[in-house]
Design a protein around this nucleic acid. Structure first.
Lengths: 251, 251
DNA sequence: TTTTATTTGTCCGTATGTATT
DNA sequence: CAATACATACGGACAAATAAA
């Protein structure tokens, strides 16, 4: 009797079909089936994971809903998506730079904005005193029409009172800074974690339940080192990888 | 009627209690309850997540099993572990540097090693021709006894034929390089993605099913820019955040 | 010390989701 | 498309431990 190649655990809060869907997705992005361009048969997959064929079917159905594969009776399950977008992180990180070679259409759309007292931990990062006013801005980045990241930005209201207004005009944070008389800015530091996407993120990024987001918390400063922007960005983990390079200076 | 502050989804393969456990763990590491040092009551948490108290209890039970919190009747649920380990990424990234202030015991243990023809994509990164021999080395990093990351390293066999041997003696890649006559090396670039942990990673890193790993692919070079090391490192996402800073130079 | 409120722990039952045969 | 077994989630009620009045 053959031992299952990949084991899955029961009774741990994650349904078997989801664990298997994740396992198949992982194998796809590792290029395991790229030679044939389609998945092994349902029975073969069931043996590989040591589960029933119905369970594999449930996993494939969820991958189909994600647009990762396409199952056709008699033909098999074809793989639709494979590679990830490389998002460069450097000392001069901008949305457009580095992505233009990888895609045709880059858009940054407006979600919401506001004006509120700065939360303590953000005030600290922006070198403000807690309670100082700050401008908030929520944005969504799309690459060739596919949502890639959503972000919540904080700016000191005293220095950049109309960031939201200028952003809605220009659809660019760099240009909104320029409109405030700041021609250039650099990345101070970036903190990267990963977690499951919540409901709002899944809606904005068009993610399936259980999907993973890469969360980056970044602080930008002007050339004198004074903080000008605090950003919390969430990337769809299965669509991007973050690439840290020294070429454009340290991040 | 009050809207739940944090939303969780049903019927998507991830149990509610697991989503809530992740949500509470996230809030803890964000320092949300650090003022009181304990969690809100079960009823308050149930309202916050919009679920039954029993569901919150299941979440807390799993956090208790992880050693994150400790529940006592009448007293509440005390927080035992607080923050994520901040793993610095810089041009001079070393396992020990930057972590020594955050923990007492830093260990790097040996898992396995080998000698094999270099896979094409790794050969390209190491500036070798495909099929050239390379030394592989698998390691596990522990911080205060808790596994934090596991890694698979590749080295050019012609230049560093005994990396595995020296590593097993010294328990340090830096020292193993030094034993080969390479006193210093720097990080060229790092590629970061996130995905669900597979079974092997769950076993090594002591992770629950459904847990997330941050995967970093890094290339180190000598001071002349010649590649010396290709590393695939998987971090337990709920135990670390990767911090990219320019202080020590670019990563 | 007693009382009271709060909080965790345990019991019951019921409905639905998950996985196998 | 069954039928079955188990896990998950909810609702209510009450007991036990703790802390504060």
């Amino acid at each position: 009797l053959k031992q299952p190649a990949t084991t899955v655990d029961r009774r741990n809060g994650v349904a078997l079909w989801r664990q298997i869907a994740d396992g198949i997705r992982m194998a796809i992005s590792a290029g395991e089936f790229s030679a044939v361009g389609k998945l092994p048969g349902e029975i073969a997959l069931a043996e590989r994971f040591g589960v029933n064929r119905h369970t594999v079917r449930a996993a494939i159905a969820s991958l189909e809903a994600e647009g990762v594969v396409e199952a056709t009776p008699g033909r098999g399950t074809r793989i639709l998506k494979q590679s990830r977008l490389k998002v460069p992180l450097s000392r001069r990180t901008r949305f457009s730079s580095g992505l233009s070679e990888q895609a045709k259409r880059l858009e940054m759309s407006y979600l919401s904005s506001g004006n509120e007292p700065c939360p303590p931990h953000i005030a600290e990062a922006l070198a403000l005193t807690a309670g100082d006013e700050c401008v908030t801005l929520e944005t969504l980045s799309l690459v060739d029409g596919m949502p890639v990241s959503c972000a919540l930005h904080h700016f000191p209201a005293s220095r950049f009172p109309r960031m939201d207004h200028y952003f809605r005009q220009e659809r660019s944070i760099t240009k909104a800074f320029a409109a405030h008389g700041l021609p250039d800015y650099v990345r101070d530091h970036t903190d990267i974690t990963a977690r499951h996407a919540d409901e709002t993120e899944r809606r904005w990024l068009k993610l399936a339940p259980g999907a993973i987001v890469l969360e980056s918390i970044a602080v930008n400063t002007d050339l004198a080192g004074v903080p000008v922007q605090y950003s919390l960005t969430r990337f769809a983990a299965d669509r991007v990888s973050l690439t840290v390079t020294p070429e454009a200076g340290a991040l």
